[in-house]
Design a protein around this nucleic acid. Sequence first.
DNA 1: CTGAAAGCGCTTACAG
DNA 2: CTGAAAGCGCTTACAG
Lengths: 338, 338
Amino acid sequence: MPRTSSRSRVTSHEVALKAGVSQSTVSRVFSGRAGLSQATRERVLAVARDLGYKPNAIARSLSTRRTRIVGLVSSHMTNPYFPTVLQAFTQRLHELGWKVLLLSAGKSEDVDELLPEVLAYQVDGLVIASGSHGRRMTQEAQRQGLPVVLFGRYALDSGVSAVSCANYEGGREVADAFLDAGHRRLAYVGGLEDTSTNLDRRRGFIERLAERGVSDCRVERGIFTYQGGYEAARRLLESPQPPDAIFCANDIPAFGVLDAARDLGVKVPEELSVIGFDDIPMAQWSGYSLTTVRQPVEAMIEASVGLLLEHIETPGAGSVVRFLPGTLVWRRSARLRR
Amino acid sequence: MPRTSSRSRVTSHEVALKAGVSQSTVSRVFSGRAGLSQATRERVLAVARDLGYKPNAIARSLSTRRTRIVGLVSSHMTNPYFPTVLQAFTQRLHELGWKVLLLSAGKSEDVDELLPEVLAYQVDGLVIASGSHGRRMTQEAQRQGLPVVLFGRYALDSGVSAVSCANYEGGREVADAFLDAGHRRLAYVGGLEDTSTNLDRRRGFIERLAERGVSDCRVERGIFTYQGGYEAARRLLESPQPPDAIFCANDIPAFGVLDAARDLGVKVPEELSVIGFDDIPMAQWSGYSLTTVRQPVEAMIEASVGLLLEHIETPGAGSVVRFLPGTLVWRRSARLRR
DNA sequence: CTGAAAGCGCTTACAG
DNA sequence: CTGAAAGCGCTTACAG
């Protein structure tokens, strides 16, 4: 059996030899530099095609000190968008000629540990699309002068650029929606306590309620799973003064809330309105039909990639935090203004 | 404003200079070679720590001709496990000291186009965890002598290693479960027509039915979304001879089937049993409580990574296709044997 | 328009 | 146990 082990590994030297030019010339053809006769360019290209030559990106990276690789930090746990976001990021970056080195871990400590290893691969920038990962990581990256963009959250004090949904305004809009529909017994079921996302959605909601004269709102904290939402809803709905409207900081727990309501025989939206946040694909499943605030994911990704590449092009420029407005999408889980 | 642009970029030379040793010695310390005095090793390590030195993995890769990067091809569309699988793969590979270059695209043509670019980064191996991506890609990789493992599907003729769930046997088990529970009017709602996964699940199901004397089974083809499942179920349940048991090739469409049944007032599991395949996390949500065949994802990932690394270590060895058994997980969506 | 040569930052025989 | 040197496969001033 023949050992097909040896990867093809055609180098520019071999191409040069066959094409009767110098190695530099081959390199010039592939690095797209101007000032090459049409004839040599074509000859080199032809030989390269015959030989199956493609420049070694690792060698190129070493030489140019640019890898055109972006590190993408994501964590399944705290990000219900995980699949969409990951896919959209990689696609966008691929379109622009970049590659993506994935850094994904369950626990944030793991990510902190992994970061140096990823930096060793000389990524040109870092996108952190993970709800709660260590500022240690962000700081470390900053310290090294590595361009960083936070996605879906921000850290104003840190001088790190970020792109986030306008969560505060989204929370306010939900408050208005509930009050306009005549709801007065309100509850908030919210996510991780230390994320800007959760904090802003809650603050927007509660402040707007207060502005319109509703000062008490039950709050269930630390709820970001289906099961958590389910249990929180049971507690709320079986209490002496059950709410008639629940705002969930994320869609996933909102599904738990809806299922709990169904199991308890609480009619949605006649007796209970539920509004989520995110608008993940399942929100439109007919089993849930969740009214929710849609994050403009595509635009957020576009903006993040744009920001990151700007930072890579012009290092030392100031940081910017961008908030993109969400949209309340009406479905059947919440009662309309009458 | 100081231009903090220049990434730190400490090199082994600078460490060597400060530690009063040669650059080779610094390199030896970090490449973990034996035969270094304890004293120099410690001195070098101390200086390196002070300077924040970490070996440049790109340079190392160029020199060793090994990048320790694995390319991971995944597609959201056709793989309901996308998040889990991606996360588990990266974590496992990280544990073993590998990095992951992500290749994810919506359309398979995009992936085919992207492959050469990823190969340019000299990945040491490729995991293809995508339902339906081009054999063109697989062939191209094989041709270059690049170790490849297919995940969640296989291609027996191609000489490519693969790890898959024992889908045929899973299909048989579902057939037995339905028949044992007394069901006789059966239907199969299945995924992409050209995937081994879908084909094997269907074949297992239908062959086992036939063995036990049930020869007619309605088949709905090309159903792999929630909406598709929902509509297929409506067609089936509103037909003159509605089935009393539906086997879905994947969990996601099974949720659509369950919601359609609910909307039509068909009682599950009294009037209709539904069994899915995959056991994604949502299957245990109380709103669905889906009986389903669990793919042993962790074991499959472990096996895939193991196979890939074996192939990387010993190129030229034969390919192997491994089938890991699934487990039928009983929940409330299907009636038990009486 | 093209070539010779230095250099990117490592690893690793080869000496000693 | 350690150093000098070649080499990994490119890019890119520098000449001409």
